[in-house]
Amino acid sequence: MKITATGLALTAGLATFATAALAQELPAPVKARQGQFNILAINLGILGDMARDKAPYDAEAAQMAADTIVAVSMINEAPLFREGTSEMDLNGTRAKAEIWDDWNGFAEKWAGLGSAAAQLQQVAAAGPEELGPALGQLGGACKACHDTFRAPE
């Protein structure tokens, strides 16, 4: 009897361990794409705080943040969105299956991010008043893609 109970506890423990391990082990392309989105968010944060007067405006820092966003927007997305890595296939990703059903549409949204980022790059060092509208444009590009291609939490 005792053995059975211990056995059960052990099995349960192993099962928990296995799920925890599974949740950790996202394929490298998924980790990489999530990382790139976080780089976008961090740099937007630098610019957004300046635009909202939550941080002092610093032309050099603003330019570097905008340059970084442009650099990320030039990353080729295809290798990061490999077949079989949608939210239907894996836990821990919010990439919708629609990305693969409509790859051209997805690529178009990524290109939209590229042009908004290029605009921002032009004006980032020109003063805090310029940041607001350019960030609005960029935010529009993020939303437009999340609207159709990212699943809710």
């Binding site: 968010a41 961090i42 944060g45 957004g48 609005g136 935010g139 939303k143 609207d147 809710p152």
Partner: peptide, 19 residues
Amino acid sequence: ETGFTPDYDSAGGHMVEVI
């Protein structure tokens, strides 16, 4: 106004039309 959360993630799904 912008769809940005305090940590500068950007809104998605049905909230986008509202924004």
